[in-house]
Design a protein around this nucleic acid. Sequence first.
RNA 1: GUGGGUAUAGUUCAGUGGUCAGAGCGCCAGAUUGUGGCUCUGGAUGUCGUGGGUUCAACUCCCACUACCCACCCCA
Length: 421
Amino acid sequence: MIQAPKGTKDILPEDSYLWQWIEETMRNEAALAGYSEIRTPVFEHTELFQRGVGGTTDIVQKEMYTFLDKGERSITLKPEGTAGVVRALIENRLYANAQPTKVYYLNCPVFRYENPQSGRLREHHQFGMECFGAPQPTAEAELIVLLINLLNKLGLSGLSVNINSIGCKKCRPNYYKKLLEYLKEHSDELCPLCNERMERNPLRVLDCKEEKCGRIAKNAPLILEYLCDDCSEHFAFFKQLLQSSSVPFKVDPFIVRGLDYYTKTVFEIIMQTDREGLALCGGGRYDYLVEELGGPDMCGVGFGLGMERILMELKNKNVPFPEAPKPTVYVVNISKEDLPSAFSITRELRNSGISADCDHLSRSMRAQFKFANKLNVDYVLMVGGDEAERGAARLRNMATGEEKEILLSDISEYILNGGEK
RNA sequence: GUGGGUAUAGUUCAGUGGUCAGAGCGCCAGAUUGUGGCUCUGGAUGUCGUGGGUUCAACUCCCACUACCCACCCCA
């Protein structure tokens, strides 16, 4: 028996219509804010992620699906959405258009080789948005407001927005020096991993979940206190925008994102569950990424939202879902001889825009009714018998049990009028 | 990558070292030969996760592997 590879999941009809509903809600919300869809390849040259995401991140070091193709090119299945979009922006010279460039991607497969568990697959799907060429924090504020609206529309509440600023090229070197000094003083109290990574990227230590490291991190110098004037102003304006939009937020000076490209604003949207906060979404500003990948000096802001996690939380919270799609009419053949006319009536109903189905198993009438009941159809149309001789068929309303003989020529109109005629 | 748990019918799960095995739900059929939901009756289905070992005998004990679930790590 061949199984789906570890960490992958089939999306079955019982769920696929929910995905479609979530996708539609996302599309509408993105379109309201002037974002258009972009679709980029599932795989890219490995170098894109090494340069974009950062060679020292865990993602690049141990979580990428990388392989050589038949032309000996190193290929990687995308581990996140932004790098590919930036590559496309540069390659297709979207930066030459009037700015900003606002794009979103939907249901984008993302791959990370790690140990799967609930809400964490090796292949998962993201909804993401990116706004290029917009240096003002209205860009990130707009994304957060949009996200809150989107999640509320889907039925999720109890969200918390955590924000932070991690500075820019100007303010970071100074801060890193201070932080490293502090960390070195306490190096014997930090976990081995943190001792290793503090040289590489001292910010990561602040994000460590080890209790002792957390204690050290709590008293560490905060980057917020070392921001340059430009970054402080940016952050202050950003907070002001969130306040005036009535978005409740919390400054969490310990947010450090797992990707190296972020600058200034970083944010996370956390779902408060019974267990603990689950990150539904993470994002931020990346003012150097476009240039680092060979494009012009152009800033960007964006986020990625895990689609599986959204659906998981919707189910956990028992959020009311839209009704599953179903045919309106099931066409029953009274006897086997009536199957051809049942088939052609079904076809005609569909041509009139009415979703309909008929028997394909040559089942008894009773079995057809049972099946129609399982499909949860509104009507059953019985084809054959005396009614057929009169050019009519019997239509049963499955909810009320009412039956009515109707001329075949009138059936579509009758159903389209909601049964009143 | 590390640790813990699980693996038996479509599904949720029982079960005992000794005739290769059950229940609820679901599925199919009949009661109701032109009619669903309720009820009743009957029926089908399993290489008991894979491979090896112990034993006269293994679904049951041991080992390995794989997958799933959970936690750590990290994140979406």
